[in-house]
């Protein structure tokens, strides 16, 4: 596997905020390459002028009226919070510098 592709895999895993262990990285890179292999098959097709399908439903968006509905009770909002601080969600320091 090329160094470049490994670098790319590293970049993508950073973009995806997905920590891969060193052995995992090699493995994923290999699999990624073979999966992209089947994906590349579609390059054979001439798609010039073909509209992309992002939705299979040919309808316009529906709009709801601007009416306020009750929100969740705060305890339900924070029910699954991994780290709660009063009625907030808490996250660790944002910057990496110590």
């Amino acid at each position: 596997m090329s160094e470049d592709f490994l670098k790319e895999v590293e970049h993508v895993s950073r973009l995806a905020r997905l920590n891969l262990k060193p052995d995992e990285k090699e493995k994923v890179a290999g699999q990624l390459q073979s999966i992209l292999g089947i994906a590349k098959k579609i390059q054979e097709l001439d798609t010039t002028g073909v509209e992309p399908t992002s939705h299979v439903i040919n309808l316009p968006a529906i709009l709801r009226e601007d009416v306020v509905r009750s929100s969740l009770p705060v305890d339900q909002v924070l029910l699954n919070a991994p780290k709660r601080n009063k009625n907030y969600f808490q996250v660790p320091r944002i910057t990496a510098v110590e």
Binding site: V67, S71, V74
Partner: peptide, 22 residues
Amino acid sequence: TASKLFCGCSATFGGEPNSNCC
């Protein structure tokens, strides 16, 4: 607006933290 863009939660400023959420 009275409610948020994609849900019925109130869009008013302020309020107790995390009280206008769904």
